[in-house]
Design a protein around this nucleic acid. Structure first.
Lengths: 229, 229
DNA sequence: CGGTGCCTTGAACACAATCAAGTATGGTGG
DNA sequence: CCACCATACTTGATTGTGTTCAAGGCACCG
């Protein structure tokens, strides 16, 4: 299939990895460059030209919904993530990728994975990362599909918390550069719903939010909500 | 709404293929055996012992929801499908697999894909089937997530229609052995909703249903509903 | 100050789940 | 073959969650 004109056709597999896992790949990366906030890196259906490694910043991958200006955000790319893994086996990127804040990126340029003089081990590692990412994303979709809004949002905060924790930052106090609207689009709900639930979570003493700064006050409480419907 | 588990963790990637694609694998298949209807083939978490090829019949892969006897059906396996691809990279099956009607199956027995003396081409073909299945399933999840019940069900019938058509059967008249409840569980909705929508589709002249027999009367009309939100 | 964009909050609505009968259907034993 | 029961399906009424529509607040920036 060529271009995903049927807008739900190629969904953009969430594809992230840790720095350690792909350092052999990074040897082929071109120099770091800066992408200003709200700038398009990749437009939907563009020809594959390589993977991007995110050194810093945050980007979103999204699909436009037909018949509405609403977007579906299929993935956020944090620093340490690889962009474009979902296009590896295809010849085109899927979904547009836009920076949310200023980003530092480097391109690992190639048109076919065969072109890279990497070892078989790296190749396999890449496939495993891809496979794992697909599973992770699959799990996320199932959660989003079958849980209440409360659970989804609670799970979102827990996931973010884990993410920062794994990178050595505080797991209970972090900044999320994306807007409420973008969180909503990621979780398939209305931004008003996100607002309301965040307010409720605050009243219940689960977390505190100040603009884009979030403080998790009761991780166990959040986990409970994330696990129950 | 009730609760999915933490073992919504490994979701069972939908994994099907066409006969032609895997005939080299089938050389390793053990003799065909029969599984009576409503019989468990695989229980959740069981150790991987190989792939099953479905010669005839229909099976479902499902996860049990915590705190309710409701199941989430993650996949239907029709004749021609391979069961267990989602466990290939793991050591355990995920989700239980139960026959819906009497099935003819054969086991392609192995514990590790390396054990099979298959060619590299077959190996790659297998990976591609897996990758494609994951994508297909991913698309399905997105659709289920972001579309109305009407669209989901319309899309379901269209998918079934395509499936039968590809196998050389009529695309507009077919029998679906699964119950309304099972269709509902597959599409993440209540069985009453399935009933109501089928009735409505019948009133609108889109299809006719008689028990498990379905006749698609207006494919374009169904496609319209499937495509709009 | 007066924008503009983002967020919050309220009210009304809609869709689908749940609860509750009631109606076919199919299998079993007499 | 029929009577019976269990199960599946349909249909209606009610409820609840989350969306949509609408208005107001707050902060950042000229």
């Amino acid at each position: 299939m060529d271009t995903p004109h049927k807008y739900l056709q190629n969904k953009g597999i969430a594809a992230s990895s840790s720095f350690g896992e792909i350092k052999s790949l990074l040897a082929f990366a071109q120099p770091l460059f800066t992408l200003r906030k709200k700038t398009t890196l990749i437009t939907d259906g563009e020809k594959f030209r390589g993977l991007y490694f995110v050194h810093s910043g945050l980007l979103k991958q999204s699909q436009l919904k037909k018949s509405s200006e609403n977007e579906i955000i299929t993935h956020f790319f944090f620093s340490g993530d690889l962009i474009g893994l979902d296009a590896l086996c295809e010849s085109h990127y899927c979904g547009s990728i836009v920076s949310i804040e200023t980003c530092g990126l480097s391109l690992i340029k190639f048109h076919d994975i065969e072109d890279l003089p990497i070892t078989k081990e790296t190749h396999i590692k890449l496939l495993k990362i891809l496979s794992k990412s697909m599973r992770t994303e699959h799990t996320r979709l199932w959660r989003t599909l079958s849980q209440s809004s409360d659970s989804r949002l609670a799970y979102f905060f827990i996931t973010m918390s884990h993410k920062f924790s794994k990178q050595g930052y505080s797991s209970n106090s972090f900044r999320l550069p994306m807007s409420r609207q973008e969180i909503a689009n990621y979780l398939c709900m209305a931004s008003e719903t996100v607002s309301r639930i965040v307010s409720r979570f605050e009243n219940e003493g689960l977390l505190a939010a100040n603009g884009h700064e979030y403080f998790i006050l009761n991780p166990e409480g959040l986990a409970d909500i994330a696990e129950k419907a």
